[in-house]
Amino acid sequence: MPEVIFAGPAGRLEGRYQPSKEKNAPIAMVLHPHPQFGGTMNNKIIYDLFYMFQKRGFTTLRFNFRSIGRSQGQFDHGDGELSDAAAALDWVQSLHPDSKHCWIAGYSFGSWIGMQLLMRRPEIEGFISVSPQPNLYDFSFLAPCPSSGLIIHGTEDRVSTPKDVQPLVDKLHTQKHITITQRQIEGANHFYTDHHDELIESCSEYLDRRLNGELTQPKPKRIR
Rank of each mutant, 00 (worst) to 15 (best):
M1K: 12
P2L: 14
P2R: 15
P2M: 14
V4N: 12
G8V: 11
G11R: 05
G11S: 12
R12E: 13
L13I: 14
L13D: 06
G15P: 15
R16H: 08
Q18R: 14
K23F: 04
K23S: 15
A25K: 02
A25R: 05
I27N: 06
A28V: 08
M29Q: 04
V30Q: 09
H32D: 07
P33S: 10
H34Q: 03
H34C: 02
P35V: 06
Q36R: 13
F37N: 07
G39M: 03
N43P: 02
I46G: 13
L49Q: 09
F53L: 09
Q54M: 02
L61D: 05
N64Q: 04
N64A: 04
F65S: 03
S67K: 08
G69M: 01
R70E: 14
F75V: 12
D76Q: 01
G78C: 03
E81D: 05
E81T: 01
A85N: 01
A85V: 00
A87E: 09
A88Q: 06
V92W: 03
Q93S: 13
Q93I: 04
S94V: 01
P97D: 05
D98V: 02
H101V: 04
C102Y: 06
I104L: 15
I104P: 04
A105F: 10
Y107W: 09
F109A: 03
I113G: 07
G114Y: 01
R120C: 13
R121C: 14
G126Y: 04
F127R: 10
I128S: 08
V130H: 02
P132H: 12
P132M: 13
Q133W: 05
P134A: 10
F139L: 07
S140H: 13
S140A: 14
F141V: 10
L142I: 12
L142M: 15
C145V: 09
S147C: 10
L150I: 12
I151C: 13
I151T: 08
T155E: 12
T161L: 09
D164R: 00
D164E: 07
Q166R: 15
V169K: 11
K171D: 13
L172G: 00
H173Q: 11
H173T: 03
K176F: 01
Q182F: 00
Q184G: 00
I185G: 01
E186A: 12
G187W: 04
A188T: 03
F191W: 07
T193P: 00
D194M: 06
D194L: 07
I200E: 02
I200G: 02
E201H: 08
E201Q: 12
C203H: 01
S204F: 00
E205Y: 02
D208W: 01
R210L: 08
R210W: 09
L215F: 09
T216A: 12
P218L: 08
P218T: 07
P218A: 10
K219S: 10
K221E: 13
K221V: 11
I223W: 07
